[in-house]
Amino acid sequence: QEEEKEIKRLAKKFNASEEEARRAWKKAGGDPETAEKILKKKG
């Protein structure tokens, strides 16, 4: 599933848990760029 792959990639890229990545993904409405910004800010 595309979403799961994206979440795993985000978690790995930002050294975050999949739970954090999933939360960022949901907050971003499934937009990878926005999710990255959220995780970057958090990191």
Rank of each mutant, 00 (worst) to 15 (best):
Q1E: 14
Q1H: 11
Q1S: 13
Q1Y: 12
Q1L: 14
Q1D: 15
Q1K: 11
Q1W: 14
Q1V: 12
Q1P: 13
E2Q: 10
E2S: 10
E2V: 09
E2P: 09
E2K: 08
E2C: 11
E2M: 10
E2R: 09
E3D: 11
E3A: 11
E3S: 10
E3P: 06
E3I: 11
E3H: 10
E3F: 11
E3K: 06
E3V: 10
E3L: 08
E3Y: 12
E4V: 08
E4R: 07
E4S: 07
E4F: 06
E4K: 06
E4L: 09
E4D: 11
E4M: 10
E4H: 07
E4T: 07
E4Q: 08
E4Y: 09
E4C: 10
E4W: 09
K5D: 14
K5Q: 12
K5I: 13
K5L: 14
K5S: 12
K5P: 05
K5C: 11
K5N: 13
E6R: 06
E6N: 08
E6D: 05
E6H: 11
E6M: 13
E6Q: 12
E6I: 12
I7F: 03
I7N: 01
I7Y: 03
I7T: 02
I7K: 01
K8A: 09
K8R: 11
K8E: 08
K8W: 05
K8H: 08
K8T: 08
K8C: 10
K8D: 06
K8V: 09
K8L: 10
R9M: 06
R9V: 05
R9D: 06
R9A: 09
R9E: 06
R9N: 06
R9S: 06
R9P: 01
R9Y: 06
L10F: 02
L10H: 00
L10W: 02
L10V: 02
L10N: 00
L10E: 00
L10P: 01
L10I: 07
A11W: 01
A11R: 05
A11S: 06
A11V: 07
A11E: 04
A11L: 04
A11T: 04
A11Y: 02
A11N: 01
A11C: 13
A11K: 04
A11M: 15
A11D: 01
A11P: 00
K12G: 07
K12R: 10
K12C: 12
K12W: 07
K12N: 10
K12P: 01
K12Y: 06
K12D: 10
K12H: 10
K13M: 14
K13G: 02
K13S: 05
K13P: 00
K13H: 05
K13F: 05
K13Q: 08
K13L: 12
K13A: 07
F14E: 02
F14S: 02
F14G: 02
F14A: 04
F14N: 04
F14H: 08
F14C: 13
F14Q: 02
F14M: 10
F14V: 04
N15A: 08
N15G: 13
N15D: 08
N15Q: 09
N15C: 13
N15S: 08
N15H: 13
N15I: 03
N15E: 06
N15F: 08
A16S: 09
A16K: 09
A16L: 14
A16G: 02
A16I: 15
A16F: 07
A16P: 00
A16E: 06
A16Y: 05
A16T: 15
S17R: 04
S17L: 04
S17H: 03
S17K: 04
S17Y: 03
E18N: 05
E18D: 07
E18W: 11
E18H: 08
E18R: 04
E18C: 10
E18P: 06
E18F: 13
E18V: 12
E18T: 08
E18A: 06
E19A: 10
E19W: 07
E19C: 09
E19N: 07
E19M: 07
E19H: 06
E19P: 04
E19G: 06
E19I: 06
E19K: 05
E19F: 05
E19D: 11
E20Y: 03
E20I: 05
E20M: 06
E20D: 10
E20Q: 07
E20S: 07
E20F: 03
E20P: 00
E20H: 04
E20V: 07
A21D: 00
A21I: 07
A21Y: 01
A21C: 11
A21F: 02
A21T: 07
A21N: 00
A21S: 04
A21H: 00
A21L: 02
A21M: 03
A21P: 00
R22C: 09
R22K: 11
R22F: 05
R22W: 08
R22L: 09
R22Y: 08
R22V: 03
R22S: 05
R22H: 05
R22A: 07
R23E: 15
R23A: 15
R23V: 08
R23H: 12
R23Q: 13
R23T: 11
R23I: 11
R23N: 14
R23G: 07
A24K: 01
A24M: 02
A24R: 01
A24S: 03
A24C: 03
A24N: 01
A24I: 04
A24F: 01
A24H: 01
A24Q: 01
W25L: 15
W25N: 03
W25R: 03
W25A: 03
W25C: 07
W25E: 03
W25S: 03
W25Q: 04
W25T: 04
W25G: 03
W25V: 08
W25I: 11
K26V: 14
K26D: 15
K26S: 10
K26P: 03
K26F: 11
K26T: 12
K26I: 15
K27W: 11
K27I: 13
K27L: 15
K27M: 14
K27Q: 15
K27Y: 08
K27D: 15
K27A: 14
K27C: 15
K27P: 02
K27H: 09
K27S: 12
A28K: 00
A28H: 01
A28V: 01
A28W: 00
A28N: 01
A28S: 09
A28P: 00
A28Y: 01
A28I: 00
G29F: 08
G29Q: 11
G29N: 12
G29H: 09
G29S: 07
G29T: 03
G29A: 09
G30E: 03
G30P: 01
G30D: 02
G30R: 04
G30F: 04
G30H: 04
G30K: 06
D31N: 12
D31E: 05
D31S: 07
D31I: 10
D31L: 04
D31Q: 05
D31P: 00
D31H: 08
D31K: 06
D31G: 01
P32D: 02
P32H: 07
P32A: 12
P32F: 12
P32N: 06
P32K: 11
P32C: 09
E33Q: 11
E33S: 10
E33G: 08
E33K: 12
E33I: 13
E33M: 11
E33L: 13
E33T: 10
E33Y: 11
E33F: 10
E33C: 13
T34E: 13
T34V: 15
T34H: 08
T34K: 15
T34G: 10
T34M: 15
T34A: 13
T34I: 15
T34R: 15
A35I: 06
A35W: 02
A35Y: 02
A35D: 00
A35L: 03
A35R: 01
A35Q: 01
A35H: 00
A35S: 03
A35F: 04
A35P: 00
E36M: 07
E36L: 03
E36G: 08
E36P: 01
E36I: 06
E36H: 04
E36Q: 05
E36W: 03
K37F: 06
K37M: 11
K37H: 09
K37T: 09
K37Q: 12
K37L: 11
K37G: 09
K37D: 10
I38Q: 02
I38D: 03
I38K: 02
I38A: 03
I38H: 03
L39G: 00
L39I: 05
L39V: 02
L39D: 00
L39S: 00
L39Y: 00
L39R: 01
L39P: 00
L39K: 00
K40P: 02
K40S: 14
K40G: 14
K40Q: 15
K40T: 11
K40D: 10
K40A: 15
K40F: 09
K40N: 12
K40I: 10
K41W: 11
K41Q: 14
K41C: 11
K41V: 10
K41A: 15
K41F: 13
K41R: 13
K41S: 14
K41L: 13
K42Y: 12
K42F: 12
K42E: 14
K42D: 12
K42V: 12
K42S: 14
K42G: 13
K42A: 13
K42P: 08
K42W: 15
G43P: 11
G43C: 14
G43H: 14
G43R: 14
G43V: 14
G43N: 13
G43S: 13
G43A: 13
G43Q: 14
